[in-house]
């Protein structure tokens, strides 16, 4: 029982690649080629892990206890420098965006903005929301998104995706009167 609980805390049913349990993978390798392979492996793992657990924001702080970066079974954790380096690799390939200048946290996009835009638009049409205003909050936590992929979607991702839909002429983002509740109006595609 305790084993199962601990396993669930670590990663649930997520299956880790073998390298995750290999201690030297937590030290940045000084040899260039080894380091490149190491960073490639981690980059892929971060994306897969976040996708599996539907995690959108990853923190780079030293003390942060994100289970992916702290493997208790071998007593190894990634330092802040390595986390920043890995997240920066993701940013460079367009799979992540730093949320602040201090590089404390990054938005990890295991699905591209374009894909999210498609998901949102398909959802809106499926619900019959053309020419209707939906609030951003409803898109994240509303009854219509419950159980769908969009549930709990990070606001930043959502806004970026809607802005893309705006460019495509499929939606329009409205600033709400209160300032913090933005609304989205969906259009039928021309």
């Amino acid at each position: 029982m305790a084993m199962a609980a601990a396993a669930a805390a670590q990663g649930g049913d997520f299956v880790f690649p073998i390298f995750y349990n290999f201690p030297p993978m937590y030290t940045l390798q000084p040899v260039k080629e080894s380091q490149q392979k190491q960073r490639l492996l981690w980059k892929d793992l971060i994306l897969r892990y976040c996708k599996h657990h539907r995690i959108h924001v990853v923190f780079a702080a030293e003390a942060d206890d994100f289970p992916l970066f702290h493997n208790k079974a071998i007593n190894r954790r990634l330092s802040r420098e390595v986390k920043v380096l890995l997240l920066d690799d993701l940013v460079r390939q367009g799979s992540a965006v730093w949320l602040d200048k201090g590089q404390r946290s990054a938005l990890v996009m295991w699905r591209s903005i374009k894909e999210w835009a498609d998901v949102i638009y398909t959802w809106a049409r499926g619900c019959g929301f053309e020419d209707t205003v939906v609030t951003v909050e409803e898109l994240q936590t509303g009854v219509y998104v419950a159980g769908t992929e969009m549930e709990g979607l990070h606001r930043e991702v959502l806004v970026r995706a809607v802005k893309l839909l705006e460019q495509q002429g499929k939606a329009k983002l409205f600033k709400g009167e209160a300032g913090d509740d933005e609304g989205i109006k969906f259009f039928t595609a021309a």
Binding site: A6, Y20, K72
Partner: peptide, 8 residues
């Protein structure tokens, strides 16, 4: 004694 996360 610390459980190993599920490995591929």
């Amino acid at each position: 004694s610390v459980p190993l996360p599920p490995m591929s």
